[in-house]
Design a protein around this nucleic acid. Structure first.
Lengths: 210, 210
DNA sequence: CAAAAACTTGACCAAAGTGTCAACTTTTAT
DNA sequence: ATAAAAGTTGACACTTTGGTCAAGTTTTTG
């Protein structure tokens, strides 16, 4: 009890301010990327004097790296509960739904990561790359299993997953184009539902009437 | 003959240097976006003194706007020959193939445009947005026609096209993730071929064995 | 409650970036 | 050939940015 209260209170100010800074930063990075974001802008958006932000983070780099970690962690948390042991149609529907939910709710983080990819993923550590690779490989194995069972057609699991990521993340990263296409000022939950139906039905059934 | 030679020679130096500058700029913008790119870096990459670049373009803005125009123009040229009057399977295959070819060959331009979208598409003029909208609408009509003919299932044409753009552009914008997934150091034409087969077969037939 | 640790901040500096200009060279037109 | 137009460039002035620091205040700890 005592120990716990010490531990939490001891870190209260720091953690509160770090959160303020990181939230401000991820929004800025999501719009302008690493190189386009000024340290001073992060300080302003955090509503803290620049020198105070320097007290918590040595430089922009450190903020950025923390955000990369956070986003990857959030990504893990969001998708580890997806059960790929179900039947293909169930599992794939759930996966697409979860990815679209993530795109809708965690738009900022998605765009932040999109910037990192556009710049070549230089900030990803070897460990982080490897982790991504392992998670993906696990998914591929499930798909291969379904293929061997004759439950789905014989396609490239890698390209299949890329197609799912692309189709879902597009709604977070390129919201503008989606809004322009749908002729909507702002995307609603309903729009994401239609997206889900379209993607799921296309992926599962194909678009040609048989 | 005379007139023509006057016209071309009169503009030779200018156009040569503008091309140098624009080529250097689009590469930098494609990596770091508008805000992340310094005017001086464009000059260095162009192998021209900064003051010389200022002689051709008043500022970074002007360079960027020219590039937006160029990319939209190139986009038009690349896809206006796509014949959507064919049978659905033929037309859709060709469309996906063309989009993937564009992603492979015009990677830089794709990424440049991706940055513009991530920053909210602020640089697109009303006219340009409208043009994009019109081209898209035309495609949608074709799809609606096919639906009314019972040739393809009743799905949202908008979301269907978004799915096609997303699945193909992903290979240009997020090459890193693709390379990581495929465990390749560099994507080859062959990789794009497999991508095409996977996307086309999935879109046309769906992934479930019937 | 006193000392230590944690936190805050204005002021400052050096480096980098933006944009201008006048003097110069090269190209073009007559 | 020569004047006008087009192109080139070093140097300069001004602004923005990144980063430090010392002197303060607040919070925690024993």
């Amino acid at each position: 009890m005592k120990k716990n209260s010490i531990k939490t209170s001891e870190k209260k100010i720091r953690s509160k301010n770090e959160v303020k800074i990181l939230n401000a930063a991820v929004l800025l990075f999501s719009k302008k990327g690493y190189d386009g974001t000024r340290f001073m802008d992060i300080a302003k958006a955090s509503e803290l004097p620049k020198a105070n932000v320097y007290y918590y983070f040595a430089n922009k780099n450190e903020i950025y790296e923390r955000l990369i970690e956070n986003v990857l962690q959030g990504w893990d948390n969001a998708f580890e509960h997806i059960n790929l042991d179900l039947e293909p149609s169930q599992a794939i529907s759930a996966y697409i739904g979860a990815k679209l939910d993530y795109a809708r709710v965690h738009t900022i983080e998605s765009r932040f990561f999109a910037h990192e990819m556009l710049r070549g993923g230089e900030f990803l550590t070897r460990k982080q790359r490897q982790h991504i690779r392992e998670v993906t490989r696990k998914h591929e194995h499930v798909l291969e299993h379904w293929i061997s069972q004759g439950k789905i057609r014989d396609i490239s699991p890698q390209h299949f997953f890329i197609m799912l990521w692309a189709s879902t993340e597009f709604y977070a990263n390129f919201t503008n184009i989606v809004e322009l296409t749908l002729e909507k000022r702002k995307l609603t939950k309903k729009d994401f539902d239609v997206a889900r139906e379209t993607i799921v039905s296309n992926i599962l059934n194909g678009c040609l009437v048989k």
